[in-house]
Design a protein around this nucleic acid. Structure first.
Lengths: 157, 157
DNA sequence: GCTCAATATGTGCATATTACACATTGATTC
DNA sequence: GAATCAATGTGTAATATGCACATATTGAGC
């Protein structure tokens, strides 16, 4: 960059943006498809309510976390998350206890049983991915990863 | 390629796959966030039920389409789509009539009013995108578009 | 220390979203 | 043309979600 004038892109090529949007919509709808979760569950050999999936993943990724933090991340009401966390706890997939520093917060972490399920799901996902992505090189995948990471960060910023 | 041995990738670098998955999850959750639709609706100055959004877009993109085709695309039950299509029709955003070639199918197309809304939403989305993507060059965006298009196609195949 | 606004969690109730069972109508197969 | 399949729709129930409100705890200001 040095002293060079950095071009600021106030407007982008409409055609590129539309194509990008179409690809995003296709991806999101494919990921949201209930049958995908079912296939993943079948591959992992594990039963889990569809709505609880992202929650368990969120606790595994960010735990220990409280209800409000998870609610903020997912954009849903905290009461919804509260109920679903209770379900996860009843299923023995997460454990909760009052935080040492703030007794209002009931920190959630994945239990041993929950971790086993997360690990099984990760492995199943990787097997499915490898089956789907045979035509990709690692370099191409890493390009996509890097660009998508940047895009998601800009979106969330 | 020519005569060169094309390497088939039965397994990819786990770290790349995990990073890619994390980016995808972040993107999908960001897109699914209800507040995004609200912001878009506010930007476009148009009121539309959150659940009807993707449906109107689907009709606009693939129309004329029947209930079952849309249901297959979105992965939801056809009865759900049937009711939502009825709502869209009552709102005057789509029009339906029996197909000439198959009278079982009630082909749906966007109405003039619906098209106006789709256009307004597209414009609003583009404005928001340009605001978010100032640090991107068109070439980078096109790279992302191309890779994501290929990825989504492989996923849907 | 005391008061008060802000924060984290949870419950009661209403609504929204969705699916399953079943019916109807039209197409297709043999 | 009888049997079967496909597209659409209705009745009903289950699930998911949000809003209003309540409780417990924290932290800020006095």
């Amino acid at each position: 960059m040095s002293g060079a004038r950095r071009k600021v892109n106030n407007t982008h090529d409409s055609e590129i943006l539309r194509g990008l949007h179409a690809a995003i919509i296709d991806l999101v709808e494919e990921i949201n498809r209930p049958s995908r979760d079912e296939r993943l569950v079948a591959e992992a050999g594990i039963p889990l309510d569809r709505a609880l999936f992202p929650l368990l993943a969120s606790v595994a990724r960010y735990g220990p976390v409280g209800v409000v933090e998870v609610a903020d991340r997912t954009g849903r009401d905290h009461t919804t998350i509260s109920r679903q966390m209770t379900k996860l706890e009843e299923l023995g997939l997460i454990e909760r206890r009052a935080s040492a520093t703030d007794k209002r917060v009931r920190e959630a972490t994945v239990s041993a049983k929950g971790q086993k399920m997360v690990t099984a799901l990760d492995a199943a996902r990787e097997r499915l991915a490898n089956r789907i992505l045979v035509s990709w090189t690692d370099a191409e995948l890493d390009d996509l990863r890097r660009l998508l990471r940047r895009f998601a960060d800009d979106l969330m910023r």
